[in-house]
């Protein structure tokens, strides 16, 4: 039974969510999520690389010999990474500095090679394109949610361009949320809450 095309896109948000269901791509998920904005741009970079590599892996899937497919995947992933790096350095130099080494490190992000191996290598170009877009967008959502929680608790506000919410700080910000301990804790607790929610709903279904 083939899944609908729409589903190839939407599955990346919930059932095949990279961070919470598959638990891959941990380093950038923690390193760049000190604000919604940083999370968003990192996510955009990942969407671009993932869609690009998925499409090309799928296009070339009949030509790639099985034994050396991994090195070829790596090259097909590294190419868009270099493109993103150069584009960011040219047009978003400040953001490029903030994201630092984690932009080139997209190349070893397990999400991308996992999608190439598990999905794009077997599926059609259109499906691979939608899959890359969906998984990437789901990942971006995760980064923005974690970034939002950390930014709100760590600075007392969330800044989206010139729009700042709430305009008055309601509490003394917890600086620790912007540092590694705060990042690990936020992700750990979010996962715990999700696990509990999933267990609850499974229990309800069983009854």
């Amino acid at each position: 039974m083939k899944r609908s095309l729409l589903h190839e896109f939407t599955k990346g948000f919930i059932e095949e969510n990279a961070t919470f269901r598959m638990v891959i791509g941990m380093c950038p998920t923690l390193a760049v999520t000190t604000s919604v904005k940083n999370g968003f741009w990192m996510g955009v970079a990942v969407i671009f690389v993932l869609t690009f590599s998925n499409v090309f892996v799928s296009l070339l899937r009949k030509m790639i010999p099985d034994q050396i497919r991994i090195p070829i995947f790596v090259i097909l992933i590294a190419t868009p990474v270099v493109i993103v790096e150069l584009l960011m350095r040219a047009y978003l130099p400040a953001m490029y500095e903030i994201l630092g080494v984690f932009v080139p490190l997209i190349v070893v992000n397990c999400i991308i090679i996992a999608r190439a191996e598990a999905f794009a290598y077997k599926e059609s170009v259109l499906r691979s394109f939608l899959d890359g877009l969906g998984i990437g967008a789901g990942f971006t959502c995760n980064l923005m949610i974690i970034g939002g929680i950390r930014e709100f608790l760590g600075t007392g506000q969330i800044a989206l361009g010139s729009f700042v919410f709430p305009s008055v700080k309601l509490f003394e910000p917890l600086v620790v949320m912007l540092t590694p301990p705060g990042g690990f804790m936020t992700l750990g607790l979010l996962m715990a809450i999700l696990n509990i929610a999933v267990a609850r709903s499974a229990q309800k279904k069983a009854h």
């Binding site: 638990v23 540092t179 590694p180 301990p181 705060g182 990042g183 690990f184 804790m185 992700l187 750990g188 607790l189 996962m191 715990a192 696990n195 509990i196 267990a199």
Partner: peptide, 16 residues
């Protein structure tokens, strides 16, 4: 429900 990754991450937070 906490076993595995959630707990590992919280522990990493305490270690950090």
């Amino acid at each position: 429900t906490l076993k595995g990754f959630p707990l590992a991450l919280v522990a990493t937070s305490l270690m950090a």
